[in-house]
């Protein structure tokens, strides 16, 4: 994780790009690098109790978009909780569906 304090804004972060503010170096960023934070979030989801590797996490403009399918509502809540912990101050849009565990209503006949 980046160690710089988050600027607390959900809308004016330079998502995945960064703004050079270092004195003459052109290397330092004012805000944590969202690209790396997304990568760390993915690692966190995989390594934790959820062992969740099925989420697609991508920067879309100033928003981080998360899509995937969670096994249960409990899992979805847990994922969103970890996302909030890992990406404070970042606008997140999550489209996490719940797995459908119903029996199929049709089959596919292969010729």
């Amino acid at each position: 994780m980046a160690t710089e304090p988050d600027n607390g804004s959900a809308v004016d972060d330079d998502v995945g790009v960064g703004t050079d503010t270092g004195p003459g170096t052109g290397a330092a960023h004012s805000a944590p690098n969202t690209e790396y934070r997304i990568a760390h979030l993915g690692e966190q989801l995989a390594r934790g109790d959820l062992a969740e590797l099925g989420m697609r996490i991508e920067a879309r403009g100033d928003t981080v978009h998360i899509t995937g399918t969670a096994s249960t509502a409990h899992d979805r809540e847990a994922i969103l909780r970890i996302v909030a912990e890992e990406l404070p101050g970042v606008r997140v849009r999550a489209d996490i569906a719940l797995a459908d565990v119903s029996a199929p209503d049709h089959s596919e006949e292969l010729s």
Partner: peptide
């Protein structure tokens, strides 16, 4: 399962 969106798929 997230692809087939049901408990199982059936193929004949």
């Amino acid at each position: 399962q997230p692809v087939i969106r049901r408990a199982f798929a059936v193929y004949g």
